[in-house]
């Protein structure tokens, strides 16, 4: 069964309000929330897959009620506690803030430009050869679930599970989030952009000529 973040294709959300926005951040605290998340990430205690999974693990009620950056803060607090960076007592204001041994890794202002410019590429060498070629027909696995951990992180959305599509492009070999999010190693695999006809995904496609393309790891796919 999926989690609440896996909302592609869901009914009932109504129109998109695409009116122009005149600020990058509408409130100062939203900018601080983004910056705090990036600065805490620079401590090196978790990776981007763990970070996404922490947000996905918010309860459906919280996930739905929280604004975008509230979810970020919710995920950040969960990671800080889980990784032992911050104690519950410190967060609750019960105990005094203990100076952290991770302080040597603190992101300083003069290192910000370099950190953002460097990024963190996800491509890695990998032992397994690509099994599929461009144009080949494939099918996604039946369950949009992590195969290692029940309720674990995966990047196969439910709407594309068990669907037949065609390999559109080969993207190289990338870190497998299903493994990396759970501290099981990067386990890089070949990654493909796979095109699905709208009629392969939806009982009532809006237009039969339309397609959806997803980036999918080799272990998500079988030949069809």
């Amino acid at each position: 069964m999926n989690r609440v973040h896996d909302m592609g294709g869901r009914f009932g959300d109504g129109p998109v309000d695409g009116r122009p926005e005149h600020a990058v951040f509408h409130e100062d605290w939203q900018a601080r929330a983004l910056a705090l998340t990036l600065a805490a990430g620079a401590l090196g205690k978790w990776n981007i897959d763990m970070s996404r999974h922490a947000r996905e693990c918010l309860s459906p009620k919280d996930y739905t009620a929280f604004g975008y950056y509230e979810k970020w803060i919710g995920g950040l607090v969960a990671l800080l506690v889980e990784q032992g960076v911050v104690s519950r007592a410190e967060l609750s204001g019960i105990g005094p803030a203990q100076f952290s041994e991770l302080a040597t890794r603190k992101l300083t202002a003069d290192a910000v430009g370099d950190m953002l410019a460097r990024g963190s590429p996800a491509n890695r060498p990998c032992d397994s050869a690509p099994l599929f070629v461009v144009g080949e027909t494939v099918r996604t696995r039946q369950f949009a679930e992590n195969t290692f951990v029940s309720g674990g992180h995966t990047r196969l959305p439910t709407y594309a599970a068990g669907a037949q599509g065609k390999i559109l492009r080969y993207q190289g070999t990338h870190v497998l989030p299903d493994s990396s999010a759970h501290g099981r190693g990067e386990a890089a695999e070949p990654l493909y952009a796979v095109a699905f006809a709208a009629s392969a995904l939806w009982r009532h496609p809006e237009n039969p000529d339309d397609e959806v393309v997803l980036d999918l790891w080799q272990s998500y796919l079988v030949a069809a």
């Binding site: 805490a40 992101l107 430009g113």
Partner: peptide
């Protein structure tokens, strides 16, 4: 806790 430099946050936001 020595984990965050507020000036670094300012620099991220400015970027």
């Amino acid at each position: 806790k020595g984990l965050v430099d507020p000036a670094a946050l300012d620099a991220i936001i400015d970027t």
